[in-house]
Design a protein around this nucleic acid. Structure first.
Length: 287
DNA sequence: AGTTCCCTGAGG
DNA sequence: CCTCAGGGAACT
């Protein structure tokens, strides 16, 4: 489930392999993956990749002539460069390998690259991911991109404190709201709230200024550590080279229902917040 | 602000 | 067979 650190991991790996390459052809095998694209993906053909960067959980690829792409992996999207592509059916349930063959199932579209057989491949098991192609200005104006809140790693404490304390509602829901803060998802919201000892159901407006400052510090520290670890691989996430991240070994509360809190040994509990699984320590995290 | 729905695979 | 995983658009 790619969140900010996983998308950053993808972007860093892709930038190395993709900048300077020219896209020569496009194949779309699953139309819904390009629903809402301003122009057909073929609009990027013949253009050289100039920059690969991240905004929130969006991958941005900028090409010559002011053209570009925006890609959202949602839960099960994967982006990478494959030397060969032999479209294969989804693996049988027993085949849980991480080998290169698995990366060739659920392929939704791919781009051919100049100077070789390599292809930029987008695969996505659950088909929630999207690829948008068109002029950079048009992509920037898409509602999902233009309405994004600030990047947490660039946000100043005083700005976050002010934003948070002017809002009402459940603290965790606010952290997941991409218009409020861009890039935090379910895993890092729970981990940050745990680190800051704040209850996921706390009312945002009732969080004190020092608590809010501590929360942003926790968010920044955890996101930075997860980027350094190459992201979290709970079920699906693999980087463009097909490798797992290792931040899942450092999760302190996410997915640990029924197990003892690493700080106080109370039993970690799970509840639903906005239909999202939410893990917290009932003793450490006060409302 | 809160709920529903989209989708496929894993696990009970 | 059932439930769960979850980002975000669309809905109430």
């Amino acid at each position: 489930m790619p969140e900010l650190p996983e998308v950053e991991t993808v972007v860093r790996a892709l930038a190395r392999q993709l900048v300077g390459r020219r896209i020569t052809a496009v194949h779309v095998c699953h139309k819904p993956s390009i629903a809402g694209t301003p122009q057909q993906p073929s609009c990027v053909c013949g253009l050289r990749v100039q920059r690969v960067w991240r905004r929130a959980k969006f991958i941005r690829i900028e090409l010559e002539s002011g053209m570009g792409m925006a890609i959202h992996l949602r839960m099960t999207g994967w982006l990478g460069i494959l030397d060969s592509l032999v479209l294969s059916p989804p693996p049988a349930p027993s085949r849980k390998g991480r080998g290169s063959t698995v990366l060739q199932s659920h392929v939704r579209l791919w781009f051919e690259l100049d100077g070789g057989p390599q292809r930029l491949v987008f695969r996505d098991i659950r088909t929630f991911g999207r690829v948008w192609c068109g002029p950079v200005r048009t992509l920037d104006a898409l509602p999902a991109l233009s309405q994004l809140g600030p990047e947490p790693l660039k946000l100043r404490t005083e700005d976050f404190v002010q934003r948070l304390r002017s809002r009402r509602g459940r603290l965790k829901s606010l952290l997941l709201n991409q218009k409020f803060l861009a890039g935090v998802g379910n895993i890092y919201a729970d981990e940050s709230l745990f680190a800051a000892r704040l209850h996921p159901l706390a009312d945002a407006g009732s969080v004190s200024a020092p608590q809010a400052a501590a929360l942003l510090r926790a968010i920044k520290r955890i996101l930075a550590a997860a980027i350094k670890a190459g992201g979290t691989s709970i079920s699906d996430f693999l980087n463009p080279d097909g490798e797992q991240g290792w931040f899942q070994r450092r999760l302190r509360v996410y997915g640990r229902a029924g197990r003892p809190c690493v700080r106080c040994r109370a039993t970690i509990q799970r509840l639903l917040v906005g239909q999202r699984g939410t893990w917290f320590c009932p003793r450490c995290q006060k409302r």
